[in-house]
Design a binder for these strands. Structure first.
Lengths: 110, 110
DNA sequence: ACGCTTAATCGTATATTTGCGATATAAGAT
DNA sequence: ATCTTATATCGCAAATATACGATTAAGCGT
């Protein structure tokens, strides 16, 4: 393979793809659900809820953070995560506009 | 790793994750755009538009088909693909309901 | 039957993802 | 200072994904 072709696509396509990638594992969707459900920011509670080891959950959290979907700040010995609603809304809007764009171009074939 | 934990999550989470996975590569988003844009189902035209080899495009098409997002039927020596709007709408709706669910549970933290 | 065109599949190389245990780090408590 | 708790990171193994060239298969025209 050697070379990655991802950067040859449009910025929009790459952005949507990386958002989708962040949501492409059930664990990460579950994490977002937990974060949205609690009225406090959660840390190790996520580990208890998910069927995964602590280190694995930490990794998924890192990916969500890298994607910009969640924020995390340390609170003493523990970490507090929450959804970055601003980024989330942006992606959500971009996503819906993709859906809309595809739909309105629907020309009935096959 | 040896064991996959994906099946330990809810059906909904798995379903959304696999939909997101299908959209997690810019090439596949580009393919969906092309399919929506043309008023005929496209085949090798996609290869011309994308910066990828024929075999690679074929692989991406296969993944989109496996995810149920597109249908394909052979037309002589060529293949005709189109978006499976029914499945697409379903996923789109599921996705938006996830977004809504997350949003309404927003309890303002961090 | 033969060649041409188109697309799928095979084989392969490399990169990335997923997962875990073990270790390191950082802060609070004793 | 040391212990405890919580989390992140490291190192590793296995699975998947990405990409390509080469080959195969399937239809069409001649």
């Amino acid at each position: 393979m050697a070379i990655h072709k991802k950067e040859e696509f449009s910025v929009k396509e790459q952005s949507l793809a990386s958002f989708a990638k962040a949501l492409s594992h059930p664990a990460r969707i579950a994490i977002l659900s937990v974060l949205a459900k609690r009225n406090q920011c959660i840390c190790g509670e996520i580990v208890e809820v998910l069927p995964l080891a602590q280190s694995t959950v930490s990794q998924h959290l890192k990916e969500l953070k890298n994607a910009g979907l969640i924020d995390g700040e340390t609170d003493g010995p523990r970490s507090c995560y929450c959804i970055n609603w601003k980024a989330f809304e942006k992606f959500n809007a971009d996503f819906n506009s993709l859906f809309e764009k595809l739909k309105e171009q629907n020309a009935k074939c096959c």
